[in-house]
Design a binder for these strands. Sequence first.
RNA 1: GGUGGGAUGGGUGAGUGGCUGAAACCAACAGUUUGCUAAACUGUCGUACGGGUAACUGUACCGCGAGUUCGAAUCUCGCUCCCACCGCCA
Length: 422
Amino acid sequence: MLEIQRIRQEKEAILAALAKRNIDASPTLDAILETDQNWRTAKTQLDQVAAEMNQLARSIGELFKSGQQSEATALKEKTSVLKTQEAELKEQVSTLEQQLQQLLYTLPNVPNEAVVQGRDAEDNQNVFEAGSIPQFDFAAQPHWDLAKKFKLIDFELGVKVTGAGFPFYRGKGARLQRALIQFFLDEAIAAGYEEFISPHMVNEASGYGTGQLPDKEGQMYYVKEDDFYLIPTAEVPLTNIYRDVILPDANFSIKMCGYTPCFRREAGSYGKDVRGLNRLHQFDKVEIVRVEHPDNSAKALDEMIDHVKNLLDKLELPYRILRLCGGDMGFASAMTYDFEVYSAAQEKWLEVSSVSRFDTFQSNRLKLRFKDDKKTTLCHTLNGSALALPRILASLLENHQTANGIQIPKALQAYTGFSVIE
RNA sequence: GGUGGGAUGGGUGAGUGGCUGAAACCAACAGUUUGCUAAACUGUCGUACGGGUAACUGUACCGCGAGUUCGAAUCUCGCUCCCACCGCCA
């Protein structure tokens, strides 16, 4: 959510930046500014009436105390007019407040100046590539065939017990999952992130804090009985640790990581993109989250990118990094880098990580601030996957397949306890 | 699930209708004193929003929401959460 003060001051700049998302925000901005103006007028009036009421009440109190009953009663009558006025203004103010809030919720974050205008994935900028794409002298198989052949994943069993998108991992497949989680966590901890094991369900306030609510409730599984949401990512519980927090000074850098299963309803998605591990309702992910001083968030983003690069290098996977264009970025993001691994067998790029900075967009909702001298200022938040497992597993299987089985990258062997799946 | 108790500022905690945005103590910060540290003393010490170039000033907030009243932290109602004990259970 953008700060209203910023919209008041930098309307034109915001408008220009939002154009990079291919949207014309000027009707919304105008509506916001108009509502804001009306709200301020009403608020000022209300404050004045309330001040008058307070003064009257005080005088009445004094009159009563000094025994001037009739004067007090006379004043009492005066208050009734003010009272109705106050009630009306209160009503007005709160209605306008709600309208303003609703309008602000509809406005996405302002893209960073490095972000280019664009429509969709076609317009993303390829900023980095690494690793070599394997050449096979045999018929390379997609991961769903490999998973079946080596009894690593059982999709049918998942369908039986739960439904589509909830696979079982078994044997070496299960072990490989556990190894990846452990590997990712160890790497994150080595990079200075504190590990958390968080709740897998969150309350409504947390959903609002990170921006899943309102509007995206369809993406989350909901437990009606208790009014809880299953987390779609560890970002939600980790970031919400800092909801309604004021950090005591400007000298901070908070780095958190956590493994959680992630639950996503993915309503309305279907087709070949959901085959195998490509899109699941439940998957595992290690997430990294940072809370930074505004001056520090650019550097933090670079560090997070390096961190993910390092992971993919160690897994010996060919990948590229895209800087998303305005149109392809998430609602809350100011700048996003997507990591895609090339899957040799599917012959396409799979998104395995998304690293973003949100600037003050989340912290404004979270009310996450720090004290700088006497002022309180909004923090910056960032997060990224490091990494999501299913597509990593898919690309490990597909890229490291040989005629004799699947080779486990060296960095992972200490965690799996085996070097090949055959 | 049952019964009882509770929710006040960073913490402890006073406050049962006006003098309370809130005592006192602790913590924190600044200063004085001091060879340094400590101690002592003095001062500062919530958040949000409005108005104002600013000094400043107004309003709201004592878990949340409604009500009574000229006036509510204080009274009434509803809700949420926390704690203790019992029941159930990993």
